[in-house]
């Protein structure tokens, strides 16, 4: 069993989500996700395809999902490794998105109507939200301020940097 203090509810839920993701697959094959190792269901890796018609197109982005022992009462954390250059991703790669925060938990003062974490969310729903966030950054809850400024003031340069970093990542 895993060495972390995961409880039975969390483990059962994570296994159900994993089973569902592997049997049905993600919509349009937009991502894959699963535990890093069979011994620890509380650490997942996701591979996210860069959405079409965005500077991220053509890239595949690995992210680490870390689940708390009281999942799904509390949300998991998601970190792109290596980090992505994006207004809503911290320089260390951690994703800042409202759906990964419970209502009332407002690190960057999201608008109150935005989607929030609750136990009825899931890995799939969160990753789909992250994919649409890649396509449409939310400048009101910026995590990378320099990137926010660049996105706002010089969109072409922002897109160039993103594309370049994808090529570098692939050793091109």
């Amino acid at each position: 069993m895993n060495s972390r203090s995961g409880n039975a509810t969390a483990l059962r839920r994570l296994m159900t989500e994993y089973k569902q993701l592997t049997s049905q697959g993600a919509p349009d094959g937009m991502f894959t996700a699963g535990p890093v190792s069979e011994d620890d269901f509380f650490q997942w890796e996701a591979l996210i395809m860069g959405p079409k018609d965005t500077p991220f197109e053509g890239g595949v982005f690995p992210a680490r999902l870390t689940f708390p022992s009281d999942y799904p009462l509390s949300p998991f954390k998601m970190r792109f490794d290596p980090p992505l250059f994006h207004p809503n991703i911290y320089p260390d790669g951690t994703v800042c998105i409202s759906i990964l925060h419970a209502p009332g938990d407002d690190p960057t003062m999201y608008e109150s109507a935005s989607e929030r974490w609750s136990p009825v969310q899931s890995v799939e729903k969160v990753i789909l939200s992250v994919i649409s966030m890649l396509a449409e950054p939310n400048l009101e809850s910026g995590a990378n301020i320099d990137c926010c400024k660049l996105y706002r003031d010089n969109r072409a340069e922002y897109e160039r940097i993103v594309r370049q970093s994808i090529q570098e990542q692939l050793g091109l």
Binding site: A102, P103, G104, S112, R116, S118, P119, V120
Partner: peptide, 11 residues
């Protein structure tokens, strides 16, 4: 909004 923030949310 009410259901998400005032009902479904723990606490």
């Amino acid at each position: 909004q009410f259901c998400i923030s005032q009902v479904e949310a723990m606490g």
